[in-house]
Design a protein around this nucleic acid. Structure first.
Lengths: 139, 139
DNA sequence: TTTCAAATGCGAATCATTTGCATTTAATAT
DNA sequence: ATATTAAATGCAAATGATTCGCATTTGAAA
């Protein structure tokens, strides 16, 4: 079980530290994407401690290695999640901020065409769909 | 020519002030989406003066009335543009931050299905496509 | 186990955006 | 026109997420 996080860290050629393992483990067990502070608090709850700066640095590092996907949200806080095969978009509840991953990407087929039409080299995209989740609808 | 901005302001039921007219006029003549500070500087260049807070407040107001579309960018600054019929997505150059509007929306047809599948009431979405523009490619 | 670059913690700095409050102004009634 | 008043503005200070500098610690290679 620890093996996985160690492998991840070895693969990107950086030191295998307690903080980094903690961050990765939190992300692995998360159902939703988390903010840096969410991660920081999770680790604290587990009895360990990391500095918030270190969480940010770890996330930046992992994002630069494409291990983590940074989601820029409308509320001013970025969320992070482990990169899964390909990428993933979310349905975000504008009331409670919970997010549900969507398992397909409406852009996949179109991206190349759009790039060609506009003479851009496409490097990526961000998509979020907003709405009210079932729980919040009840209220 | 002034008529248009006056109409816009009348329509949303708020005071018709110099600052607001200035913001709207800058947005009308802009080719790309602009940051609050871009707008602030444009107005200053024209010899007038507005407070940056006022620019933000005007933009928030207009966004709340759906007259302006707020684009959340990866560089930490939001960009704004007048809402055109329906909505619009952008191809954004990650190098020079220029953006090109895309005249169709890949989500249009899918949104309802996605909402139904996940039991969400869909309220909207944001999509941006990133790449390198023709000019920046040359470098 | 020595060595040293890489990583961390801490506090301070940044920077876009927001807010409180005193002052000004546009729109309405007089 | 003028008075009246809620809405809008300017200003400066606050906020809040993220970043940075730097002294200290630590993992990994020799």
């Amino acid at each position: 079980m620890k093996k996985t996080t160690d492998d991840i860290l070895a693969k990107i050629g950086c030191k295998n530290t307690k903080s980094r393992k903690a961050v990765i483990e939190v992300l692995e067990s998360a159902e939703n994407s988390l903010s840096a502070e969410d991660i920081f608090l999770c680790i604290k709850e587990q009895g360990s401690s990391v500095n918030l700066s270190t969480v940010y640095r770890t996330l930046d590092l992992m994002e630069s290695k494409s291990l983590v996907n940074k989601i820029i949200m409308g509320d001013g806080k970025a969320r992070y999640e482990l990169t899964v095969d390909g990428h993933r978009h979310h349905l975000v509840c504008t009331n409670c901020h919970k997010s549900v991953p969507i398992d397909f990407c409406p852009l996949e087929k179109m991206e190349k065409d759009i790039g060609k039409t506009n003479d851009f080299d496409i490097t990526g995209h961000k998509l979020e769909i907003y709405g009210i989740c079932p729980e919040c609808k009840k209220e």
